[in-house]
Design a protein around this nucleic acid. Structure first.
Lengths: 248, 248
DNA sequence: GGCGACCGTCAAAGTGCCGTCAAGATCATT
DNA sequence: AATGATCTTGACGGCACTTTGACGGTCGCC
């Protein structure tokens, strides 16, 4: 009996948590120059890097190597980048950072809706990409604990997702249903850029996809109730043209 | 590996909450990638896993194998996921964890109302699913026997959950069965917001999910009998549009 | 520098929800 | 059958919340 249990523990250790010191990155792009630049820069900083030049190879590589983060160019030769995102999102929550050309705004929004975590416009600065990559990996680590004690803390307020309660400076903050729903969606995706359409669909329903003024009104309410300086948001950040982001 | 004798003993126990050394999981999903990912991960952690690709096979497998927990995707080809839940709930209390697509809020509520125990939104992190799976199995184990000293005190009244008595100012307060039932649900979740649907389902049954006026009437009764100032509730707080909350 | 897109702010109009009351309906007890 | 307690049902006023429209500011682009 104990022998069996030891073996189970050993196997479960080998599975994922074992050598977590090295972060594995999967780079997906069909332009060799970009791939080469990324590989060199990432390896120089201690990442372990795999590369794939099209969507099919990307999905295969992701399944085989279980990367910690994926950097994905949307313009691939064999399949739409959105298909790759959906293919990954069927079974994994690995952070996906999208590379997108500058004048393709819908493309980026669609990618976020499909489940991407963040985006970087091409041409990109290596420092910016590295910063977003670090942020994505960092927030992927703390795994959601039990259903009961789901509490998100910031320096200025506390959100208890289970009790549906928000505290600030010792007292409770009263939120309306819509305010709470909006806050919940944002807080459940910390650090991640959530598109306007995603928020509207989740809070108001699929038919309200274009009523972006609702978001402006309720974002203002939330900031007024929770931000220390509502005019200069620190926790609920606007990404113009894209969506909003909650910073823990 | 465990021998034939162990399995015979386990199956002869026949009880659902039995403390078998190996936890059996039934995975129900029509997407092969997801099934494969789950099977690999769960087996690596020592679970015994069966898989079913549609609702009919799921019900058959559940009847044949008596799993300790079911992981169920709501989007199945042959029948609605809710039908599967109801089919299971007709004869077993086995914990059911639902896999749900991201933007399907009502779906999740309906699943919980139908008798599911928990849900995980797809895409899911394997660690999160495993945590919820452990929690579900743990909850299913014999939990009883802490009903002894279940007494909740406030400055104005006392609720004895074991004796089913409520005291206020030295004398007993007389509550009708429905009033007591409602009070009990609220007091058992101190500080937590309990949704209207949850209260209605618990006190009146699942089919009364929309009769919110019952809640208004009986909340008024409770407040009249227990609150020092019924017009300004201190212990039974209304969260407009969401539900009620008992403040200890 | 002008122009347009986008965001934040505000306040008024509209809507739905909650608390309250009271009268039927149902049930238990005698 | 009668009585009293409990549960259901409907109506209504008040108020909180949502919706809607208008205005001004900022940023990027031509």
């Amino acid at each position: 009996m104990t022998g069996v249990r030891d073996r189970e523990q050993r196997e479960s250790r080998e599975r994922e948590g074992g050598d977590a010191a090295v972060t594995r990155v999967l780079v997906v792009d069909d332009e060799p120059q970009i791939v080469r630049a990324l590989v060199i820069n990432l390896r120089a900083r201690g990442y372990r890097v795999d590369a794939a030049e099209d969507g099919a190879k990307a999905l295969a590589a992701a399944a085989a190597r279980h990367p910690d983060v994926v950097v994905l160019d949307l313009g691939l030769p064999d399949m739409d980048g959105l298909e790759v995102i959906r293919g990954l999102r069927g079974w994994t929550r690995v952070p996906i950072i999208v590379l997108s050309a500058r004048h393709a705004s819908d493309e980026k929004v669609d990618a976020l809706d499909a489940g991407a975590d963040d985006y970087v416009t091409k041409p990109f600065g290596m420092d910016e990409l590295l910063a977003r990559l670090r942020a994505a990996v960092r927030r992927a680590e703390p795994v959601a604990a039990d259903t009961d004690d789901a509490v998100v803390n910031t320096a200025d307020f506390t959100v208890d997702l289970a009790a549906k309660r928000v505290g600030r400076g010792g007292t409770d903050v009263r939120l309306t249903p819509t305010e709470w729903h909006l806050l919940e969606v944002l807080v459940r995706n910390p650090g991640r850029l959530v598109s306007q359409q995603q928020l509207l669909k989740e809070v108001w329903g699929p038919s309200y996809r274009t009523e972006t003024n609702y978001l402006r009104v309720y974002m203002a309410q939330l900031r007024r109730k929770l931000e220390p300086d509502p005019a200069r948001p620190r926790y609920f950040v606007t990404e113009p043209g894209m969506g909003y982001r909650f910073e823990g």
